[in-house]
């Protein structure tokens, strides 16, 4: 069977899987770059993705419209993260605890919403997910076509968001303001920038991106919802941001690395490699720890990272 691992067919399906599985990590990671650059660590991404996954899926199941479901997923992500913004910016609570609380709440809420809408059922509710594009036959090109041109539209949107996010952060006033409130909120405040306004925006945009990643799992990767559908992708995305030292380009490579680990795990299982599936399933999580080890020392965190801002305090 090891000869199969080194075959071209295996490599092609592995790379195609890498790109597909990088998507649900790339989207929330790009969003968290806004949030973390503004000085807020939102560990609630995991729960935000779960909420978007269930809401987007429900809407698609009810209306049959994938795009409507996607839009609702993005909206759900933005709305749910308002809670995080309120807790961390307005109430100035500890962001780590707030994030954990958001995730526990989301676990309950998502299961409740699913049960309320779909009732108790023996088989999970299913939808027809986004189909792969073929780019007028480009996907028929041997090997390259399968790797690059045979994904659904959301995958391309995710990768298109990389330069867009870079542009917004580096080339617009808004991006500059985000970095200012993350580095030196007091100076930003004295220049007339609304620190809490910008931080709210950064958290909500991050939530919208996370929502896109979450709903991707239920309407573009799988065709159903389970309570473990996100499976730590939110936390992995947060560590990808640290790994990427807060830049969109490097976040893309980070997401691809995790996509590779996940895809390798899936492909080796499908092959019946003899390596127990449970050990393969550990791969992305072990990789996260390893990546964090290598990246954290070098990462230059924004100066006001996880520190709430108050005009009254020095």
């Amino acid at each position: 069977m090891w000869s199969e691992v080194f075959s071209l067919g295996f490599l092609v399906s592995l790379l195609a899987g890498t790109i597909r599985l990088a998507t649900p990590i790339l989207m929330p990671a790009l969003g968290q770059i806004y949030t973390q650059r503004a000085g807020i660590l939102n560990l609630g991404v995991e729960g935000t993705m779960l909420m978007a996954a269930v809401c987007g899926f429900s809407v698609t199941a009810a209306t049959g419209s994938l795009w409507f479901g996607f839009a609702v997923g993005v909206l759900t992500g933005a709305l749910y993260s308002v809670l995080m913004a309120w807790l961390s910016v307005s109430l100035r609570v500890n962001q780590v605890i707030a994030g954990i609380g958001m995730n526990i709440l989301a676990t309950g809420l998502a299961a409740y919403i699913y049960r309320l809408i779909f009732g108790i059922r023996t088989l999970p509710a299913k939808i027809v997910p986004f189909q792969s594009l073929d780019f007028f036959g480009l996907s028929k090109i041997p090997y390259v076509g399968t790797v690059l041109f045979n994904h659904n539209i959301l995958v391309y949107i995710a990768f298109a968001l990389v330069p867009i996010t870079w542009f917004i952060l580096e080339k617009t006033t808004f991006g500059l303001k985000i970095k200012a409130v993350g580095e030196h909120p007091r100076a930003a405040d004295s220049k007339g920038i609304s620190v809490s306004g910008i931080r709210y925006a950064a958290v909500i945009i991050g939530g919208a991106y996370a929502g896109a990643g979450g709903v991707f799992m239920t309407i573009a990767y799988l065709n159903m919802f389970t309570e473990s559908v996100i499976g730590g992708f939110g936390y992995i995305a947060v560590s990808v941001v640290i790994f990427a030292r807060f830049t969109p380009g490097r976040a893309m490579w980070g997401a691809l690395l995790f996509g590779f680990a996940s895809a390798l795990q899936v492909r080796l299982q499908a092959l019946g490699s003899g390596i127990p599936s449970q050990l393969l399933l550990m791969l992305p999580y072990i990789l996260t720890v390893v990546a964090l080890i290598f990246a954290s020392k070098k990462a230059e965190f924004p100066s006001a990272y996880t520190i709430p801002y108050s005009r009254m305090e020095r």
Partner: peptide, 29 residues
Amino acid sequence: LKTRFNANEVITTLMFNYIANYLLLYLIN
């Protein structure tokens, strides 16, 4: 890992949950 490499303990302890869970599944299967 936190003291030596500055690795955020929230993420590492959480990843260790997944790893321990899969280790358990591996052992009992």
